[in-house]
Measured scan of single mutants.
Amino acid sequence: MGFKLLSKLLVYLTASIMAIASPLAFSVDSSGEYPTVSEIPVGEVRLYQIADGVWSHIATQSFDGAVYPSNGLIVRDGDELLLIDTAWGAKNTAALLAEIEKQIGLPVTRAVSTHFHDDRVGGVDVLRAAGVATYASPSTRRLAEVEGNEIPTHSLEGLSSSGDAVRFGPVELFYPGAAHSTDNLIVYVPSASVLYGGCAIYELSRTSAGNVADADLAEWPTSIERIQQHYPEAQFVIPGHGLPGGLDLLKHTTNVVKAHTNRSVVE
C-alpha cells in the first residue's frame, strides 16, 4: 500500500471513529477524501466538511520552486461564519470567499490569524475590503508590521502568557507558548472536538522541520505538551499544512522538532 493511500485511509478511519463516538456532533463529509496538494491548482481553494458547521479550507501556493498546501478553518456561528487564517495570499483568499459563498452561503463576518507569517495573514486586506472584521493577538499584529505583512485590524486580548485561553464565538483560542513562531495560536472547536494546530503542528508525513527561522526550538516541545494537557479530548487535529489526523500529530511534531534540534547540535 502506497504512503499517500495509507495517509488518506488514516484520515478516513479517524473521521469514521469520530462519527461513531459522537453521532450528534459529527456529520463528516462523505463526498470524498481530504484534498491534497496535487489536486488543488494554485489560485483555487477546496472546502472539506469535518463536522456539522465545521470545515477546513485548503489552498496551495508556490514557494521556492515548489507547491505547498495550506489549511485553515471555518466555523459556523449562528447565521454567520468565523474564518481562521487566510488562504495564503490575496488571490487565494478572494477564491476562498467565493467558494464559501458557493458552498455554504453564509457571510464571513470575523477572521482570526493564528500567527504573523504570510500563509496566515496574506489576504487580510481582501477580507477587510469584503467587510470582514480581522483579528490577531497584539504580538501577531506587531510582528506582521515588522515583517511588512498585512496586519489584522483588531487585537485579541488575554493571550499574552503561555497557557492563556479565551473564548471567541464558537471557538476557544489558546496560546501554548512559542513553537513554530513566538505568537502562534491554537484554535479548538469544543462542539466538535476539532483542534486546529496551525503551523505549530505537523502532518504525519512530514519528517523535516522546514521553516524554523522564527521558531523557538527549545520551547516548542513544552508548548505541545500544554496543548495535549489542555485538549486531551480532541479527536480531529488539523495541521497548518497537509493531512489531518488525531492527537498523534502532536507527538510526531515533537519528535521531528527534537530530531532537528539534535542534528543542529551535532553539526
Rank of each mutant, 00 (worst) to 15 (best):
P170I: 08
L81S: 03
A130V: 11
L173W: 02
L83E: 00
A133S: 10
G43D: 11
T207V: 13
S22W: 15
V146T: 13
N149I: 07
H57G: 00
S137H: 09
D248T: 14
I201F: 07
V132G: 01
S7Q: 11
L249N: 04
A130I: 09
S56K: 07
G43S: 09
I40K: 14
E145R: 14
G245R: 03
I40M: 15
P232N: 09
E267G: 06
V265P: 10
I186C: 01
E33K: 14
G240W: 04
L159H: 06
D214E: 06
T60L: 14
S160Q: 13
E101K: 13
L243W: 12
V67I: 08
A90H: 09
L96Y: 00
A130Y: 13
V28E: 08
D118Y: 05
P107R: 15
V75N: 01
I17V: 10
V256I: 12
V108W: 03
Y34E: 15
D248L: 09
I100F: 05
R128P: 05
I224P: 00
V257W: 01
G177S: 06
A144C: 12
D119S: 00
I238G: 01
P69I: 15
P69M: 15
R142F: 13
E203Q: 06
S208G: 10
K4F: 08
G53Q: 10
D248H: 12
S162L: 10
P23L: 12
D77V: 03
L47T: 09
P239L: 04
P69K: 15
S70R: 00
K8W: 14
A130E: 12
T153M: 10
G32N: 09
H117R: 02
D85G: 01
L96V: 04
M18S: 13
P176C: 00
Q235L: 12
R46A: 08
V187G: 01
V146M: 14
N92K: 04
S16H: 15
F63I: 14
E44M: 10
G89S: 06
K102V: 14
L6S: 14
T254N: 13
G131W: 06
V166K: 10
V146A: 13
H117A: 00
G148W: 05
E145N: 14
G198P: 02
I17T: 08
T36D: 14
S22M: 14
V42H: 10
G246A: 10
L47A: 03
A192H: 08
R76E: 09
E33W: 08
I100D: 01
I58Q: 06
S22H: 08
I186G: 03
L249D: 01
A200F: 03
H252Q: 05
N184I: 04
A133R: 12
T222I: 09
N211S: 10
V171A: 06
I186N: 04
L156R: 03
S62I: 06
S7F: 08
K8M: 14
L96S: 00
S191N: 11
S38N: 07
D29P: 08
I100R: 01
D85I: 00
W220D: 01
L83Y: 02
I201T: 07
A133M: 14
G72T: 01
K91R: 15
Q61K: 09
E101W: 08
F26L: 15
V187L: 05
A59C: 06
A25W: 14
V265F: 08
L10P: 13
V266K: 15
P176Y: 01
S38Y: 09
R206I: 15
H180S: 00
T222S: 13
V171W: 03
V132P: 00
Y68L: 12
Q228T: 15
A192R: 10
A179E: 04
L217F: 06
A165Q: 14
V187Q: 01
K8V: 10
T114V: 01
L24T: 13
L249E: 02
L6C: 15
R263T: 11
A19V: 15
E145M: 13
H154E: 12
W220K: 01
D64L: 09
A218L: 13
E203L: 01
G78C: 05
V108D: 03
Y175V: 03
V237L: 11
D214K: 06
R206W: 15
D214F: 05
A15V: 07
G240F: 05
V256C: 02
D118A: 06
E33V: 10
D214C: 05
S139N: 09
L5G: 07
Q235V: 11
D52S: 11
E147T: 13
N92Y: 04
A213M: 11
S113T: 05
I74E: 01
P152E: 00
L247Y: 10
S30V: 13
Y188Q: 00
G148L: 09
P35R: 13
S31D: 09
A87I: 00
L106K: 14
P23H: 15
T222W: 12
N211L: 09
T14D: 07
G197K: 02
L159F: 06
S208N: 11
A95T: 12
L217H: 04
V266M: 11
A87W: 01
R128H: 11
T182Q: 14
S38P: 08
A179W: 04
E99Y: 12
T182N: 13
L81P: 03
R120I: 00
T134K: 01
F236T: 09
E147D: 09
A66S: 12
D183Y: 05
I227A: 06
M18C: 14
S62H: 06
E33C: 06
T86K: 02
L97S: 03
V112G: 04
L185P: 03
A25H: 11
H117S: 00
P35Q: 15
V187K: 01
T222N: 13
F116I: 03
L173G: 03
D119W: 01
I58F: 15
T134D: 02
G89P: 05
S70E: 03
N255A: 12
S62R: 09
V126D: 04
V126G: 04
D29M: 08
G163M: 08
G131F: 02
V266Q: 14
D64P: 06
S181G: 01
T153W: 12
I50N: 05
A136K: 05
A94W: 11
L24W: 06
M18E: 13
S208C: 06
G197Q: 02
Y12C: 13
K251Y: 15
V108I: 09
N71H: 01
V121H: 03
G32F: 15
T134W: 01
P41H: 13
S193L: 14
E39D: 15
K102H: 15
R120A: 04
N255D: 10
D164N: 14
L13E: 05
G246N: 14
D216N: 12
P23W: 14
Y202Q: 15
D214Q: 07
K258P: 06
Y34W: 15
I74Y: 04
V266L: 13
L81V: 12
S38H: 10
L156A: 04
P232Y: 08
H241D: 04
G105I: 03
G2Q: 15
R167Q: 12
A95P: 03
A51T: 09
G123E: 04
N211R: 07
R167Y: 11
S62P: 07
E99T: 12
D214W: 05
A111G: 08
A234I: 09
L9W: 14
S56E: 15
A51L: 05
V67L: 15
G53C: 05
G242A: 05
D118I: 05
T140G: 03
V75Y: 02
F3V: 10
R110L: 10
K91V: 15
C199D: 00
H252N: 11
F236Q: 09
A59L: 05
T182C: 05
I17G: 13
P107T: 14
A98P: 06
V126I: 07
K258V: 12
L6R: 08
N255M: 08
H154L: 10
G78A: 08
P35W: 14
K251D: 14
V121R: 02
V237N: 01
V146K: 13
P35F: 08
Q235P: 06
D248N: 09
Q235T: 12
V171Q: 02
P138M: 08
P41A: 13
V75T: 04
V256S: 02
A19E: 15
P190C: 06
V67W: 11
A234H: 02
G89L: 04
Y175F: 09
H180Y: 06
R120F: 01
A192N: 07
